[in-house]
Every structure is written in structure tokens, then in C-alpha cells.
């Protein structure tokens, strides 16, 4: 119990309390994050150990099973990879290497996977970032427009567009984009790839259409969310108050309603980031972009186990981190959460 002096305003103390609460919430959330990450890494490691057949034999037989090998080769490789140790020893060894920044070497190219991922990562990040912009630019205005014009022809048109976006698989959307581009604009997917830092304009041009394809494929859900949330908020008392005090309809919608409606949309949008990154797997394959997603697929096709492992952990990590960021952002935006 504290007695407030005259110089100390209670409001300051309230703010301080709220700040410590926030700090506690962040700390709790961060602490929960670590066991989840460990759990996920264990799951991936075990999962990839249940591949039918001997991993060493699988590697020695080559990408399409054309190479011959002897039992001695298999034994030697098993020894070298530490496959004869119990699985938890294997996991601990792998984890300690991972923590020291050594992601291991690819079975196929014999090159460092870390190097490879470092080269691919910026490209995928760039693609995901561009498509996030596309998604926000497409889905929020469309959702708002559909809600404001509820049950009009525009609403039905925009909603059908959203339902269609949800029903179309992203690879089909991407192929249609390629078709429109090549027939209409005589554009073809670039063979090489220019990084953002060397030549920003060319790099932007290269990623523009892939980002649109990925963005369109992922915006259906957010359009529906924005519309539904805004409709709910528009029925709230404070919106009626805002209207009653004579504010212009535009100001009521933009300043009072949309701001509140977007909170849950941000949460859903945040959980979609993980899905967005798994969408890059498909888009990068179609548009021939040398990012992490295509890296995963080529690792899968050549059964490059250490690489597959790293890629999957990387994608799961992105999903977990984006969930974490969204949770924290949500608590920061909406004080009710951290008091809960």
C-alpha cells in the first residue's frame, strides 16, 4: 500500500505499474518461447530419423539411387556421421554444433549449408516483405470497402473475389500470373538473380510479380477478417457516439472504427506470416527464385537430409518468431491483454 505525496501524481504510478506488467508479460512469453523452440527442434530431428531404410545407404545410393556401394562404405559413413550413437546423443551433438553456428555440410554439394542459407535468406525475406505489402494494400481497403457497402453489389463482388482467393491454390494463381505476364506483356521469369543491394531497381522488378502472386493467394482470409471485424465494430456504442456528435462518416470509419477493427486482423495476419513463408516454397519454385524455399525443394528432391533438417527448422523458427512478435505487439497495442 502506498500513500501518494502531493508531488507524485497517481497517474505516473499507474503508468509505471502498467510498464512492469508489460515487462513481466514479455518475459513470460520469451521464457515460454525457449521450450517450444527446443520441442520443435526435437520433433524435426526425430521425424527425419524415422525415414524408412538406412540413412547412410540412402545417401550413398545418390539422389536417384543410381550409385553402387558396399556394406563397408555404409558402416564407414555411419561411423563418420555418428549414426551408431543413441538418438539423444545424436541430437545433442547436432544441437551443440547448431548453437555454435555450424549448420553442417550438404550431402550432395558437400558445401556448408550455413553459407547456402545465408545466400538464400535475404532473397526470401525480400519476397515475403514485398508480398506482405501487397497483402496489406489489397486486403485492408477491400475489406473496409466491403463492410462499409455491406450487402451492396460491390460487397458481393468483393466477397466473391475473397472466396475465390481462398479456394485457389497459390500455385495455380502463380501460374495464371505467369500466363498473363508472358502472353500480355511478353515477360519471362529471369534466369539469373540480382540482389537488392547491387541493383535495387532490377531486383525490385524481379520480385514484383512473384510478390503479387503470393500476396493475392494469401489475401482472401484477411479480406474476410477485415470485413467481419469492421462490421462488428460499426455496431459498437462509441461508433454511434462518434456519429451522434456530428463527425463526418469518413472520420468515423477511419479514425474510430477501422483502428479498432484492425487489432484482431493484425493477429490473424501475424499468424499468416508463417504460412506466407511456406508459400514462398511454391512461388520460388514457379518463378525460379534462388531463395530458401527453392533450396528446401531441391534438398528434398536430392534427399539431402542435413539440409532438409536445417530448412525445416528455419521455417518453423520463422513461424514461431512471428507468432511471438504478434503476441507482444498485440499486448502492446491492446492493454487489456497484459492485464489478463
Amino acid at each position: 500500500m502506498r500513500v501518494y505525496g502531493l508531488l507524485e501524481k497517481p497517474i505516473d504510478s499507474h503508468l509505471k505499474k502498467s510498464r512492469t506488467r508489460m515487462r513481466k508479460y514479455v518475459l513470460r512469453r520469451l521464457l515460454l518461447f525457449i521450450p517450444t523452440l527446443i520441442g520443435v527442434s526435437m520433433a524435426v530431428f526425430t521425424l527425419l530419423r524415422i525415414i524408412p531404410g538406412d540413412i547412410a545407404a540412402l545417401i550413398l545410393s545418390g539422389p536417384s539411387g543410381e550409385l553402387t556401394y558396399t556394406q563397408e562404405d555404409v558402416d564407414e559413413l555411419r561411423e563418420e556421421m555418428g549414426l551408431n550413437n543413441p538418438i539423444y546423443i545424436q541430437y545433442l551433438n547436432w544441437m551443440s554444433e547448431l548453437l555454435r553456428g555450424d549448420l553442417g555440410n550438404s550431402f550432395v554439394t558437400k558445401l556448408s549449408i550455413g553459407e547456402q542459407v545465408r545466400r538464400q535468406l535475404p532473397i526470401t525475406m525480400q519476397l515475403a516483405f514485398f508480398s506482405m505489402i501487397v497483402i496489406s494494400v489489397i486486403s485492408i481497403p477491400i475489406g473496409v470497402l466491403a463492410a462499409v457497402k455491406q450487402d451492396s453489389a460491390i460487397d458481393y463482388l468483393l466477397r466473391s473475389f475473397a472466396i475465390l482467393g481462398l479456394a485457389m491454390p497459390s500455385f495455380f494463381v502463380a501460374l495464371l500470373v505467369v500466363l498473363i505476364l508472358s502472353v500480355g506483356l511478353h515477360w519471362s521469369a529471369p534466369l539469373g538473380f540480382v540482389s537488392l543491394w547491387n541493383d535495387p531497381i532490377t531486383s525490385f522488378q524481379q520480385l514484383f510479380f512473384p510478390a503479387i502472386a503470393l500476396g493475392f493467394a494469401s489475401s482472401g482470409l484477411l479480406v474476410r477478417m477485415t470485413r467481419a471485424q469492421l462490421l462488428e465494430v460499426l455496431r459498437e456504442d462509441y461508433v454511434r457516439t462518434a456519429r451522434a456528435k456530428g463527425l463526418a462518416e469518413g472520420a468515423v470509419i477511419l479514425r474510430h472504427a477501422v483502428r479498432n477493427a484492425l487489432l484482431p486482423v493484425i493477429t490473424i495476419g501475424g499468424t499468416q506470416i508463417g504460412f506466407l513463408f511456406s508459400g514462398t516454397v511454391i512461388i520460388e519454385t514457379i518463378f525460379n527464385i534462388p531463395g530458401v524455399g527453392r533450396g528446401l525443394i531441391s534438398a528434398l528432391n536430392s534427399r539431402d537430409l542435413p539440409a532438409i533438417q536445417v530448412y525445416i527448422i528455419y521455417f518453423a523458427g520463422i513461424a514461431l518468431v512471428s507468432n511471438l512478435i504478434v503476441d507482444l505487439m498485440y499486448a502492446w497495442l491492446d492493454p487489456r491483454i497484459r492485464y489478463g
Partner: peptide, 12 residues
């Protein structure tokens, strides 16, 4: 649930 479903499907 932490895994994006397509990615988990690829891993499985």
C-alpha cells in the same frame, strides 16, 4: 500448431 501446415506436410 506452431508449424505452417504446408511445411509440416512437406516435412512429414
Amino acid at each position: 500448431s506452431a508449424f505452417p501446415s504446408l511445411l509440416l506436410a512437406i516435412a512429414l
